[in-house]
Write a protein that binds this DNA or RNA. Structure first.
Lengths: 295, 295
DNA sequence: GTAGTTCATGCCGTGAAGGTATCAATCGAT
DNA sequence: ATCGATTGATACCTTCACGGCATGAACTAC
């Protein structure tokens, strides 16, 4: 035999009123069915919960103990639908966010602040991975949202430009080019030792720089995949490097960032990327909050 | 609208099987009513919990969240009857025990050990109070059981002798009587300064000593209600005192305990005392465990 | 003793839950 | 592409559990 939530509500009402009639009134019912509810509950529980005669009603010790459990059950039962609704509407939940390292630190912070502000109940789990890994993780449902650089397959993913920034030339602070009072142009770099992006592991930057700075690969002395590594090599005086403007935030010492003339003023793009048909309401809500936002 | 525990069980089954037919079989029912159960649950909760078409069943994020709550509810709901039964049978619960101070420390420890051993789920709350206070507290339902000394009203209370011990004479270790190679007799105490029990506050000992040791009150220098106080006065050389044998355990320095010839060998009684009609099952069980036990 | 209070019980009608049969949609095999 | 198999949803029926009303039983108070 088993008991019901209604019976628990009956027990709580009677325990609080210590009077069947009043308890029944509070439950919008009449006294007889309430009496039977309690009887059935006692039968189901296998213990007398209320000590009652025609004059007074009192909880037995077993009733006290069971009442506490009943209250716990009812508290959860009442709050659970609201929780489910919040999750369903996306106001509560989990979004797993992939992001590329170093270069996105500044944007990532602002993004998380924005979400914290508007969706405090949405928990964001962070996964550091390069663009290619993000695409695989999105396809495999391992992350919900990526913060990555083109190109993406528009068949599989929706995406939106989130941030656009300039390409700068990172040089050692003692470098002669720092004396220049105009933007650097490709011709200035003739014979300059270059720290360059890996064609495989940093394909976006490789392609971007090649298209933005003709003749750039003349004297490549290092091939690197991470912006941070480039900056430390510049700091060590190994050469100059093309980096996104946000690299300035990384605070690598003895490096100066020089403006660079490019065909497009801010050619470095960072996109939001997500599966075309996601079933995560929190993701929908996150996208809605970020809609139109440029960081 | 509201939901039921049955619906929660349905949800859990479907979530575990991810298949309505198998889940229904596990619940010993057919598939159609289970489908309706889930539909009603979703309506009551106000959120879609399962994503289902004719080919596959999956939990929505809201379903995941709600499922966790459902499991919590069902876990409590299943364990609660057992808890109530344990309380009802007295194997779990609370017994509030009154005890008189110092003189009962040794017996109290053994008593609690015995209960701990046989009734580990019964919690014993301790209340230090003199016999008179215990009687009032028992009558007022403030304690369930007393550890006290006669006399009691047998109309109101049941009682049972739990411990019987000798009455000793406490003297300073330098006292001439310590040289005696036989029990002290009343005549030995002629002219001896006595630390005596208060007639009001320690009536049991007062009456007991008066009946056991004729002429005892000849030279009373202090009137005291607590055994511990008596011993410290003896230790300070203020006189001699009649104390129960268990006072030896209190470890008051420079006090020696001498055997005393009394009409009855072990005249000091300690009783268990409880209301004749208690409604505390844990008390019944405690009495049953202690039945016949002499400490 | 009588009236009033309060919980339990008997009886009845409604409605909700489960069962059977069937539909609708989808997948896989031929 | 067609057909059968699978699976969740729906229609319809029957049962029984629940709530309401009337009343009983036990006790209190005056």
């Amino acid at each position: 035999m088993n008991y019901t939530l209604e019976q628990l509500r009956g027990l709580v009402a009677v325990a609080e009123e210590l009077h069947f009639g009043r308890a029944a009134a509070r439950l919008r019912m009449t006294q007889p069915p309430l009496s039977r509810q309690i009887q059935k509950l006692e039968a189901a529980v296998g213990a007398q919960l209320l000590d009652r005669d025609n004059r007074r009603v009192a909880l037995t010790p077993a009733g006290e103990a069971f009442l506490a459990e009943a209250r716990r059950i009812l508290a959860i039962a009442e709050s659970a639908p609201e929780l489910a609704q919040r999750v369903s509407s996306g106001f509560s939940g989990l979004v797993r966010l992939g992001f590329t390292s170093a270069s996105t630190f500044g944007i990532l912070g602002r993004l998380l602040n924005e979400l914290e502000l508007h969706l405090p109940e949405v928990h964001v789990e962070l996964y550091e991975m390069v663009t290619r890994e993000q695409i695989a993780a999105l396809a495999g449902q391992d992350i919900d949202l990526g913060l990555a650089r083109p190109p993406f397959d528009p068949e599989m993913f929706d995406s939106r430009l989130l941030h656009r920034e300039a390409l700068l030339l990172a040089v050692h602070e003692s470098h002669p080019l720092t004396e220049l009072s105009r933007p650097v142009v490709p011709a200035d770099l003739a014979g300059e030792p270059l720290i360059f992006h890996s064609q495989q592991k940093a394909r976006y930057f490789y392609d971007l720089v090649v298209s933005m700075v003709p003749l750039a690969q003349e004297r490549v002395v290092h091939t690197v995949s991470q912006v941070m590594t480039m900056l430390w090599l510049v700091s060590a005086g190994r050469g100059v490097a093309f980096v996104p403007a946000s690299a300035q935030l990384l605070g690598v010492p003895a490096v100066t960032y020089l403006p660079l003339r490019t065909p497009i003023p801010q050619p470095v793009e960072l996109h939001l990327l997500w599966p075309r048909h996601s079933h995560n309401p929190a993701l929908e809500r996150v996208l809605q909050v970020l809609d139109g936002l440029m960081l």
